[in-house]
Design a binder for these strands. Structure first.
Lengths: 342, 342
DNA sequence: GTTAGCACTCTTGAACAAAGAGTGCTAATG
DNA sequence: CATTAGCACTCTTTGTTCAAGAGTGCTAAC
């Protein structure tokens, strides 16, 4: 098995960069002209054969040029990625959009998703901050009618949940008010993730004077927080249809179907939740339907800890340098934006 | 110009029904066998030629069968639609899903959209109840910190809006409480649409003791209600890729792009807001990008008045009888569901 | 008015050839 | 001994031709 020496790397890089541009298998001749490699097409041919033997390139058919394999992209991404600078114009444009959305913090993720779908020809995926990582600010129970109460949870990222609840039994407004204050004071400043069942139980015990209703509220509102986490924005799925690899609707459909299912995308984003930038090429992620696609996702932070993720889904043939730079920049911007204003 | 006599109508109907099934131009021979029309292929040919002259059928090319034109579908829909009964199984399934979603009323539209996208191979579009038609229940300002207040509007369809607002100046909690009560009492039971600027002005004048803040709140919250109306759910857009007319991604893309833009879909749904079932075939609606698509939308009602709309977007070649039945049934079910529980 | 018959048109698919792109191998080269 | 020119070979792509098939419109007979 041949070694990946410097010239092979140069050729692999050139093949990938050319293929990303043209979406056509690249041959030795083309490469010899396009890239200044200083060797003849014949040499390139030999090297390409070696790269194919190593599993980094592939031939669609005998007399075609080479295209990168998933492993080829992986080597490229791992060891020769030239992360590009985002043009200043795009940076400013992103910043402005973010600043505008910040007036209602809940809207930031959607705005980011739209920005990503505008700046790339791919689908964008953005998760809201995970509730466990949000910092609890207030819980308010507002009496509406005798047996109806409005429950609102406010965190450092804005209103997390606002729901009306039907209670089995009437509850007096003062009790609700006291309950609101109690819970709010007890948990203010804590990440929601820290509000465990045992802690909740303590409070429930303390306010035993209205045991049943408190229990109900605790159950319906706080215990369900993890489930409420599944808030996700997906934009630009139609972009994918513009990619030559998905010109046929039959190949595009499973991809768009997968992107329509929020659980699926949520899973993808969760897998990325810790890493600064996660690049999953082709079959490196768990979603069967997105086999031919790459995912580039970065976590953004709230209060110094990973809170949510954002990124794009597109064909494996993509300019990783540019995409990574963009995704990283957006993650940083969101982290910053959500940290600054509160 | 020939008249549309009984036999022509039979043939038009047969052509449409066959074409809906097969997605292939239908010829006289096929029709003579498939439909029991009691006349020969030659006669059918003559009639088809007449129907073409009348602009109800068209030929993709000289030696192909006929396909319906938009106007052909229109005649069919207007005068020979056989609205089908929804199978009992589907009816129950829909009811169950709706009942489950009703625990949180805000979720009903999304649930309906998913149901529609499951029951049809088309994209579904559902709007939330238009705020103007919702009945005002409560407005609550909850003080969070000195210059931060949580504003919640509750209507008969649940929480309409919950936002945190930054105020320029501190505001005492009692004032907020009184303000909440005042506005709530004043407008309780009124549709939001009746809460005009002049009425608002009155209240603002009454509570002049906190003039500036009230004004701010009125502006930021109540005046913006129409804009907040744009809440829409779209599901199953990938379904469209399964339709033979959109097998090519280049024809499908503009359609999916349009369906991604909430303003566009909102416009469509608004156009339907009054009619019990609105059928727009091909070019009968305003959305350029959806030229080859039909829209079947029905308004649902809250409190006896049209409040929102739901329906599907698919190729003009669709089984209108079945689709109309389904959409109508769902609209009725939603109206009922939103009326019953409150 | 209806229909059988038929010539005509146009698409579709297959078969085939020529062109083009690209490879792998071999032998010559510095 | 790595490099490269040359070349035969392979496979796709494209265009052409041809026959088959589907469907029509017209005409003439019923």
């Amino acid at each position: 098995m041949p070694r990946l020496d410097a010239r092979k790397r140069d050729i692999l890089r050139a093949v990938i960069q050319t293929y990303v541009d043209t979406a056509e298998p690249v041959g030795s001749e083309v490469l010899a002209h396009r890239a200044r490699l200083g060797v003849s097409a014949a040499t390139i041919r030999n090297e390409m054969a070696a790269l194919e033997e190593m599993g980094l390139l592939a031939q669609p058919h005998t007399s075609a040029g080479r295209i990168p394999t998933d492993r080829g992209y992986r080597v490229y991404v791992d060891s020769m990625l030239e992360e590009e600078q985002l043009p200043a114009g795009q940076r400013h444009w992103v910043r402005r959009r973010l600043a505008a959305a910040l007036a209602e913090r809940e809207r930031v993720p959607q705005e980011v998703a739209r920005a990503l779908a505008t700046l790339t020809p791919y689908a964008s995926v953005v998760s809201h901050p995970h509730p466990r990582r949000l910092v609890f600010r207030h819980l308010h129970f507002v009496p509406l009618e005798a047996t109806r109460v409005l429950a609102v949870i406010v965190t450092d990222a804005g209103v997390l949940q606002a729901r009306t609840l039907d209670l089995q039994e009437p509850m007096d407004p003062d009790g609700l008010e006291r309950l609101s204050r109690m819970v709010s004071q007890r948990f203010q400043g804590h990440p929601l993730g820290e509000i465990t069942d045992t802690l909740l139980q303590q409070v429930v015990d303390e306010v035993a004077w209205q045991h049943r209703v408190v229990k109900l509220l605790a159950d319906r509102i706080l215990r369900r927080l993890p489930a409420a986490s599944r808030r996700i924005h997906i934009e630009g799925t139609a972009n994918i249809l513009a990619q030559p690899e998905f010109r046929d609707a039959r190949t595009a459909r499973p991809v768009l179907r997968a992107l329509e299912q929020e659980e699926v995308v949520a899973g993808l984003l969760e897998d990325a939740s810790d890493r600064p930038v996660w690049i999953a090429i082709g079959s490196e992620h768990r979603v069967e339907a997105l086999r031919g696609c790459s995912v580039v996702v970065a976590a953004y932070r709230v209060g110094g800890r990973p809170a949510g993720a954002l990124g794009i889904v597109g064909p494996t043939r993509m300019p990783y340098g540019r995409v990574v730079a963009l995704v990283r920049y957006l993650a940083d911007s969101v982290s910053q934006a959500l940290a600054e204003a509160r």
